[in-house]
Structures are given as C-alpha cells and as structure tokens.
Amino acid sequence: MKEVLLSIIGAGPAGLAAGLYGGRAGLKPLLIEKLSPGGQVLVTDWVENYPGFPDGLSGYDLIEKFASHARLFGMEELSGEIEEIQPVDGGFELSLSGGEPVFSRKVIVATGAGPNKLGVPGEEELTGKGVSYCATCDGPFFRDQTVAVVGGGDSAVQEAVFLTKFASKVYLIHRRDSLRAIKILQDKAFSNPKIEMVWNTVVESIKGKDGVESVELFNRSEGRRWELKVDGVFIFVGIRPNTGFLKGLVDLDENGFIVTDDWMRTSRPGIYAAGDCRSKPLRQIVTAAAEGATAAYAVEHDLAMQE
C-alpha cells in the first residue's frame, strides 16, 4: 500500500494551497482528485475579487496558476474518488474507487461543495434541458432567449448579469424583497435593462416536454400564482458540502459542513478540513486558500509534536 505523511482530498483552491504549503514544508503531500484541478471555481466566468489580480481573470486561468504553483514544490497527484476513510493504527486508510488504497498519517479534506437543488417538480427531469447550475457552461445555449435565474446571493446576481450577454431577457426570481448579494453586484443588476426583478416569489415547478417551457411561480406576499414562459432556469440557491463520506468520522454542523478549530483540525485527530466544505461565514477563493495553508501548517506542527 502506498504510504504518505499527508493526503489532501480535493483539488480546488483549498486543496491546492494545502499542497503548496505542505510541499514547501517537505511533507510530499499527495493530492487526490476525481477530475482535474478546479472545483467550483471552474463554473465562475470571471474572478474579480482575488487579491493581486485587479483586472480579474477566468476561474480556469486562476486554478491553473494555483496548480502549477503547487507542483513546483513536490506535491504528488493521484486521480481517484475517495470511498471511505478508515482510522487505522497511526493514521488512516483511504479507499479509492477503482484504485489501490492509500495509507496516510494525516488527511486534509478539501472536497468543497456543489449546488443546492430547488427540489421542485420538473427540476431533475429537465436538468441539462434548460435547467442549469452553471451559467458559464450553458449560457451560450440561450442566445436571444428568455431565462429565469433563481436566488438572491452573490452567485445568483453575478450570473444573472453574465447571462445578459446571451439572453434577451433575464428574470431574477427571489423569495425575499431584497437581495443578499454585495452592493457592487446589486448595482450592476439594477442598472441592467435586460434584468427584471421578481420579488417575494418562489418557483413551484418547472414545466416542459423536451426542454424548459415555463416556470410556475407563487408570490408569497400577494398570494398570487402564475406561469412565466422561459427557455431556461438557472438555479443559484446556495451550496451543499461534499462531506457524505465523513458521516460518523468527524463532527458536521446541521447542514453537513465540517466543524474545525482555528487550526482547521476536525473533531477527529489527524483529519483537517479547509475550504467550502468547512463550517464558516465566508466562502471565497481567498478564504479557501488561506485555510488550505493553515491546515498544512497545522499538519506540519502536529507531526513535529508527535516525533
């Protein structure tokens, strides 16, 4: 069995930053990822809040920089998906789907998160046929068409603005009477003539035969129900952590995010967490990277204490 000091699960900004710091600390970290590096950053069309890049850059370009930087300092990479982490004497055994297991003394979980679903009729059946969770991937299929964006946070508002590049009309449907998104994004949305706000409204179902044809809406303050014709529905209603494989192993909060201390240590000694999968107030590339660095530092520190 392959034996390493440190395994990092997930190659988004948190995992890659942990790989960089772990590599520089001489830990020869093993980064395990099921796809190629990226994570949710890849669905962002333009990153304009990562410090040091005042002109902004694409999510893909940023993650390429993270990955090539981490590779300079001895990080190894393994392609695979973690099925289980088993505590064993002196560390953990990681079982991978379609690959040999790995023994690792310490593990940093940086598995990130994925989009929440609305959970309404039609959503699952029409996913990929007009229902989307990625505006940069699917926006160009809606040229000169009408789309609905559901949500009121940063992602929803940023992607609504992005979609006006293609769509002729964008309805931004939000269940409250004000947006949660930061002001600079709100200003962009309110000043865009293609965006129409639909306040206090929830989507009750998504309808269509071979593709999305309409959404059924309910205005909660007026008690009004109506059907809105749209060609696409883009859903940005928060995220859910990729932590299912950790149940019973480490403490999770009520939404499944991993609880850690300031050193990114979980409730299970030897397992650390960083990035979007962690329970915390702000989920950004810059916070993920900082936590990856902190987690690698904690691993280095804790290994030295055990020597």
Binding site: G38, L42, V43, T44, S58, C134, T136, C137
Partner: peptide, 17 residues
C-alpha cells in the same frame, strides 16, 4: 464540449483515460 466551459476542461483528462 466547448473551450469556454470550465467543467469541460476538468473532465477532459478523464475522457482521455
């Protein structure tokens, strides 16, 4: 796939394998 799609690039190595 398309060049402008980040997740398409993420899946490319899997397709090659």
């Amino acid at each position: 796939w398309a060049a402008w799609c980040g997740p398409c690039r993420a899946i490319a190595p899997v397709i090659e394998e």
